[in-house]
Amino acid sequence: MKLRTFRRHLREGVKNIGRNGWMTFASVSAVAVTLFLLGVFLILAMNVNHFMAHVESQVEIKVYLTPDAKPEQVKAVETALRNQSGIKSVVYVSKDQGMEELKKRLGDKAELLEGLEKQNPLQDRFDVKTYDPHQTPQVAEKIRQIPHVDEVQYGKGWVEKFFDFTRMVRNVGLVFIVGLAFTAMFLISNTIKITIFARRREIEIMKLVGATNWFIRWPFFIEGMLLGFLGALLPIAVLWVGYHALLDMVRQDLSLFFLDLLPVTPLMAQVSLLLVVIGMLIGMWGSLISMRRFLKV
């Protein structure tokens, strides 16, 4: 396409936005509402995801060694663990360190352990974390096969249920996002349909004098894109301000200290970008689907 032609399409597209003032207003606000809901949901989903990822990363495998393992055998187990794929970190905890940990955890009741220091009943162990927490059961199963490994613990049963839960939450989130996106697309496509209907005479003449379909489509395409873009601006502003306020509130209210929310900067930039892109994409798509019928001349 020639630059001159593109400029013409751009001019026509912008002109249409002004020409159908009220329809533009209606569809931009409809898109804004939809994208606002989508944005709220995205922020919520990303925070929940952040929280879940945090909990997931706490999942570790405790690898207990047989009491008779000699130092070089312990070394061999460590090497075997480090060579295992999917493992992020391996930390050695001797039985003496284990005892210290236990004491610390018991706090005032540490005296219960008195006398046990001489004959430490604990085992040396490795704390292992995986790159993908969802792989924990499989990795644990492989570790069990290593010689001199006595026992492997990772919260079997509980971990699987927790992961099922997080997976479900993520899937429901995805369904919501797709659903909202479709609603916005439908709204934009309806507006474009009205624009096109108002200009069907012009389209008819364009076809008669030999305009290609893409020549006819471009202005509407640009109009849809602009509608989506404009519709994204307002919700972005509102969400930005709103999330700021929410963070301030949480920070000041001590009873909410456990809420570990994502900071504004990367999150809101991501959400804004996503909303703009989604807005423009559904705008373009909406205009394409509403064009189809009118180009069949």
Partner: peptide, 11 residues
Amino acid sequence: AFAMEVVEAPS
């Protein structure tokens, strides 16, 4: 002119 713009003739 419209008919010529549509076929992308130089202005």
